[in-house]
Design a protein around this nucleic acid. Structure first.
Length: 355
DNA sequence: CGGAGGTA
DNA sequence: TACCTCCGG
């Protein structure tokens, strides 16, 4: 539902600088991020095969993670990786749909490969990404060597993260969409996990600056008085659990409807009256509302943030996963140097503020 | 995706 | 410096 509701949220987005995230603990939906690396980090020559080591272990995500972390850590951002647990039963339909799309993309890629059309093959390959236990284990290994926590959500990572921000153990959830807000996260950072890309209004590409979005600012912009209304808006335009939303209802109409029927009871009554067959939701809307209100989460999860173990990172990537030693070492060196520079700058700033 | 290395 | 294209494991 990310892009849908995004159209309604303009004023509440506040562009920020990396220094604004200094020392901030930010929840990361780990599966999401891993997918974001598996899709594009591929070989063109093979029509979109993964990067792998000599034994065939996938390394695309390790490359992505490595560069992402070496860029985050100098800014003293503290990512906390949250891994999905068991999906809620009503996500099964959506999961199946996604699987079907992948199967289809696999076939289309094979066709393209047979024709020798590497470019098309590459495009289809991006859709085929599948996370395996090996991919997860390696990601966790690298994350650990970077001194960062991997935590296990009871169910949805977004929900777990949103809970932890409310609880105060995290400062914000990093996300591209607004689902975390439906789960009640007080703060979301956008554009942290993606850079580059996005077409500028006039010409060329534009680098996306990170944005901070506060829950209260979202409510204010939408002129809502409570989280239920935000959830209702989501249900109308679509969420992971009813991805299609309601046919014919886009963000603008949805907003009007929630203003007109500002309680779940009123809105659901309106909907059942208007759509008597009641085929608009794959599940009773009350059930989805209740899920967003109180998803399955684990309370008071403990985690520790440590110093990165540079030699372990190098050893793992170079010795075990066939990365080029000089690349890894140079990048780590750069991380350390940048870290020092930024630390000096921040220390100076806080000194200046003090006087 | 992000970096390297080339070109304008 | 800005942009482009190729490549990484």
């Amino acid at each position: 539902m990310g892009t849908q509701i995004g159209k309604l949220l303009v004023k509440c987005r506040q562009e920020i600088d990396y220094t604004d995230l200094y020392g901030k603990k930010v929840g990361i939906d780990a599966y999401n991020l891993i997918y974001a690396f598996l899709a594009p980090i591929r070989y063109q020559q093979t029509g979109g095969g993964y990067l792998t080591d000599s034994e065939g272990n996938v390394t695309s995500h390790l490359s992505g993670l490595f560069y992402k972390l070496t860029n985050w850590l100098p800014n003293n951002i503290r990512p906390v990786f949250i891994f999905d647990g068991k999906p809620p039963t009503f996500k099964e339909a959506e999961i199946k749909t996604r699987q079907e799309k992948k199967k289809e993309a696999v076939l289309k890629r094979e066709e393209a490969l047979a024709k020798g059309d590497l470019e098309s093959a590459m495009k289809f390959a991006a859709v085929t990404s599948k996370i395996t236990p090996q991919i997860i284990d390696d990601a966790k290994q690298l994350i650990e060597y970077f001194g960062l926590p991997s935590i296990q959500a009871a169910s949805e990572a977004e929900a777990q993260g949103a809970y932890m921000v409310q609880e105060g153990s995290l400062d914000a959830m990093a996300s591209q969409d607004y689902d975390s807000f439906l789960f009640g996260s007080p703060e979301v950072i956008r554009n942290l996990t993606v850079t580059r890309r996005r077409v500028a209004t006039k010409d060329g590409l534009i680098e996306l600056a990170p944005e901070k979005v506060n829950f209260n600012a979202v409510l204010q912009e939408l002129q809502f008085t409570n989280r239920d209304q935000l959830i209702l808006l989501g249900l109308l335009v679509g969420t992971d659990y009813n991805p299609k939303g309601i046919k014919g209802i886009g963000p603008k109409t949805a907003l009007k409807l929630v203003h007109k029927y500002p309680t779940p009871k009123a809105l659901f009554e309106y909907l059942t009256a208007k759509y008597p067959q009641n085929e608009i939701f794959p599940f009773p809307p009350q059930m989805l509302l209740d899920y967003f209100r109180s998803p399955d989460v684990t309370e008071s999860l403990q985690f520790k943030i440590r110093k990165p173990q540079l030699s372990k990172i190098t050893e793992f990537l170079v010795e075990e996963r066939d990365f080029t030693k000089t690349r890894i070492e140079n990048q780590l060196k750069r991380m350390v140097v940048t870290r020092r520079k930024i630390k000096q700058k921040v220390d100076q700033q806080s000194l200046d503020r003090f006087f």
